[in-house]
Design a protein around this nucleic acid. Structure first.
Lengths: 169, 169
DNA sequence: GTTGACTTGTTATGCTATAACATACGATAT
DNA sequence: ATATCGTATGTTATAGCATAACAAGTCAAC
C-alpha cells in the first residue's frame, strides 16, 4: 500500500489508498447489514453498489444505468433509480443533491451524519464526520420549535490535492 | 399585527406576521444593496424577488416563470432562471436544492449561513440562524485539509404549527 | 454616435426523475 | 406441489428541471 497519511478513513477520498480493499470491505459490510435487516441485496442492487464503489466520485443515475445495461440489466431509468433508492434507504449510499448524483457510503452501519465535501476541481466527494453539525442544526431548529427528521449537508470547495496541484488528478 | 411570539425574525415563516411589511422591507433593502454594489435591479429581477417574497414557500423556476409571463415578461425558462440566478448571486434569494426551488432571503445583507428548515406538511421554508453549523463544518473540513467555499445546509421535518394541527394550514 | 458590456428574448435541446402497468420471482402456507 | 401474496424487475411513456447558443435590444462611457 502506498504511503498513507495518519488519518482514519476520514477524507479517504482525498488520499491515496488501497481502493480495491476499501470497496471489498464495504461490500461485505453491506451484505451483512442487508441480511440483518431482512432487506434483499439482489443482483442489480449489489452491482449498483459495486459501481458506486469503484470510485469516490459521485455518479449520476444515468451513468450508473449505462453501466448496468452493459452488465445485462434493464436499460430504463427506473432500473437505476430504484436500485439507488434502495441503497440510500439502507444507508449504503448517499444522494448528493448539489450534483444530482449518488455516492457509496463510506461508513455503512455506523451512526453518522453525512457531511459531503465536494471538490470543484477533481469532483471527488468525501464524507466528513461532523456530528457537531447535527447538534448545531438541532439546536437552531429547536429554538423555533422545528423538529428535524433528515438533513442534507453539503459543501463545495477544494480538496488538499487540488489546492496543491495546478493540474489536478 | 396579530399576537406574535417573542422571537426575532428567526423562523418567521412559521409564525403569523405582517407579511406585506416583511416583504416591503426586504425589497427596500434589496434595492439599496444592489445599488451599493453596482448590480442592476432591473424590472424582471425586481418582480422575481417580489414574487418570491409573496410567500415563505419555495417556488420552482417554472412557477416563477408563469407569474412573470402573466406580467408581460418573456415566457421561456431562461427568463426565470437568469433572474433567479442573479438574486442568488446577490444574496437576495437562496436555492433550495432538495426542492429544486428558490426562496427569498430573509436576511439580505447580513452575513449569515443559510440553514433551511423545510416542513414536510405545509412546504414552508424557514431560514434558521446557525453560524455554529458553519463553524462545525469548517472544523470537519479543516481536519482533512479541505477548504470550504460554499455550503448547502437543508433539513426536512415538521414545523411547530404542523406538529400541533392535524389539518395543517 | 459609436463602441462595448450587459440584459433580455427566443429557439432548441439535454438532463433528471417518476408514474403506471406488466411480468417474474420467492417465501409461506396449505 | 401449488396457490397465494408481497416484493422486485422490466418496460413504456411522460413529466419536470435546467442550460447552450444566438439574436436583438438597452445603457453608459468615451
Amino acid at each position: 500500500m502506498p504511503d498513507m497519511p495518519p488519518l482514519g478513513d476520514t477524507g479517504l477520498a482525498f488520499v491515496r489508498h488501497d481502493h480495491s480493499h476499501c470497496a471489498k470491505d464495504t461490500l461485505a459490510r453491506a451484505d451483512a447489514l442487508s441480511n440483518a435487516r431482512g432487506a434483499r441485496m439482489t443482483p442489480v442492487r449489489r452491482r449498483t453498489l459495486e459501481i458506486l464503489l469503484e470510485s469516490h466520485k459521485a455518479m449520476g443515475a444515468y451513468d450508473v444505468l449505462e453501466r448496468l445495461v452493459a452488465d445485462g440489466f434493464g436499460n430504463q431509468p427506473p432500473v437505476a433509480y430504484r436500485a439507488l433508492e434502495f441503497l440510500v434507504e439502507q444507508g449504503l449510499a448517499h444522494r448528493i443533491r448539489r450534483l444530482n448524483a449518488f455516492a457509496a457510503c463510506m461508513h455503512p452501519g455506523e451512526a453518522h451524519v453525512p457531511v459531503f465535501l465536494i471538490c470543484t476541481s477533481c469532483q471527488l466527494v468525501a464524507e466528513a464526520p461532523a456530528d457537531d453539525v447535527r447538534g448545531a442544526m438541532d439546536a437552531a431548529a429547536a429554538s423555533i420549535g422545528f423538529v428535524i427528521e433528515r438533513t442534507n449537508v453539503e459543501a463545495v470547495g477544494r480538496c488538499p490535492a487540488c489546492r496543491g496541484n495546478r493540474a489536478c488528478r
